[in-house]
Design a protein around this nucleic acid. Sequence first.
DNA 1: TAACGTAATTGACCCAGATCAAGCGCGAAC
DNA 2: GTTCGCGCTTGATCTGGGTCAATTACGTTA
Lengths: 248, 248
Amino acid sequence: MLNEDSISLSHDCGDCPIRHRAVCARCETDELELLEDIKYYRSFEAGQTVIWSGDKMDFVGSVVSGIATLTQTMEDGRTQMVGLLLPSDFVGRPGRDGAAYDVVATTDLVMCCFRKKPFEQMMVRTPHIAQRLLEMTLDELDAAREWMLVLGRKTAREKIASFLTIIARRDATLNLRPAKGALVFDLPLTREAIADYLGLTLETVSRQISALKRDGVIHLEGKRHVTVPDFSRLMEEAGDDSDGGVLA
Amino acid sequence: MLNEDSISLSHDCGDCPIRHRAVCARCETDELELLEDIKYYRSFEAGQTVIWSGDKMDFVGSVVSGIATLTQTMEDGRTQMVGLLLPSDFVGRPGRDGAAYDVVATTDLVMCCFRKKPFEQMMVRTPHIAQRLLEMTLDELDAAREWMLVLGRKTAREKIASFLTIIARRDATLNLRPAKGALVFDLPLTREAIADYLGLTLETVSRQISALKRDGVIHLEGKRHVTVPDFSRLMEEAGDDSDGGVLA
DNA sequence: TAACGTAATTGACCCAGATCAAGCGCGAAC
DNA sequence: GTTCGCGCTTGATCTGGGTCAATTACGTTA
C-alpha cells in the first residue's frame, strides 16, 4: 500500500510524514496551493470519537499517526468493526453528507484533513483525483468483501490467524520492513477490539491467541508484541489460498 | 435505487429495459454514440458462470434481467456470497484487470456490457462518469459494511429477517410498487444460496423461515412466494434501527 | 510499597446453530 | 400414471463458541 503513488490526496508536505503522491505527481502548482489552503490537522486522544454515525461530516482526510476504527452498533450494544484505519489510510465520503459509521481513535491520533466542499470542487477540476479515489474505494470494497468471508465462514482460530496476517502485512508495508525472516509487530488493538473486528467475544480471542502461542504459530512478549516465526504457517492457519507467502 | 439518475452508465436505450440516466442526463451526443458503439449484450443460462475470480475481465456492465451472485470460495469449498446482482446493478472494476470474485448466474441472465478499454477512455474524457462510479462504489461499500454487521453479530433469525427486508426493499423499488400495505415478492435464491449469503447452513435457513412463518411475521405460498403483512415487524425482527418502516 | 484499576487469562457450563439423517413435495422425463 | 431427482423440511444429536465468574498480570497513582 505504501508505494510510489498510492497514498493519499494532498501533495507531499514537509510537516506531514505521509507522502501524498496521487495529486503531487501530476497536478498544477495552483492546485497544490489550493490543497495547502484547505488543509488542516486534527488531533485526538485515545478513546475519543472522531465522528458519530449519521453526523454531518464536512471533511475528508487521512491518518497521519495513530489508529482509528470504523464501527457499526446495534441498539442493544452489539458492535461490529467494519474498518481499521492505520497511518496513510483515507477517510471520507466525497459526495456524501453524513458519516456512515462511528469513527473512534483507539490510540492518540493525528489526521490530515481537507474541508470537503473545496476538496470536492477541486475533484471536479482535477479529474484524476476522482479516478484515484475510485481505485481506493474499490480496494476498500475488496477488503470489506474479503472480510465478509472471514466473518461468515471462518472458525475462531482461522479468524484470529486472518487478523494477524492482515496486521503483519500492513505493518511490514507501512514500516518498509523486508518481508522475510521472522515478522515482528505490535497488536494495534485490545482483545475486545479484536473481538469486535472478528465477530467474536474477547474470551474467545484470548483463548485462540493462547492456542496459537501454545502451538508455536506465534510468540508473544507481553500482551501485544507478536513474533511470527513462519508466515506461511500462519497463512495456512488462516485458511488463505497459500499461493504465496509473499508479503505484497 | 431506481430513481431519476442513478441506474447505470449507458444512455437510455430502447431495447434495454433499464433506463441509464447517469450519462444520458448530461453527456454529449457523440458520447452517446461511442457508448452505443462499444455496447453489447450477453446472455447466460441459470447456473452458468459469468466469470471466475482471478480471470481477466475485459468488460463492465449492468444486469438487464435475471439474477447473479458474487461469491468467494475457500479451497475446502466453504463459500460466502459477497454480493447479489439484481436488474440495474453494475458489475465491473474500471482500472482493475482481474475479477475479484466468482460471478454466477442463478437464473437466466442478460447483461448489458461495455468493453472495458474504450469505457475507461470515455471515463477520462467524461469526468462525471468517474464521479458517478465513485458514488456507486461508495454505496456498495456501505452495503458491504452493513452486511458485515449482519454476518458478525446477528442471530440466525435476525439474519433471515435482514435478508428478507433487503429483498423486499429491492423488489419494491425495482418494480416501483407503492411501499405500503402488505409486501409481496418472490425469493430470488434457493435456501442454499441464502445460507451462503448469510453465513449459515441451509437447514438453519429453512428452520428460521419456518419459524418466522409460524410466528406470523411472513406468509409463504409454495417455497418462494412471500407476503409480509407488517414490514415494521419484520424490521424489528431484523434488529434494525426502527426509525422508519419507510421503504426508501 | 501498597493499593487500585484496567486488560487479559482461564475455567465451568450452556446453548445456538452445525451436522447427520430421514422423509416430503412437486415438476420433468418416460 | 410411475419414477426420478432436486429442493426443501424436520428431527436427533453434537460441538464451537458464548456466558458467567474467578484469578492474574501490570501499570499508575499515592
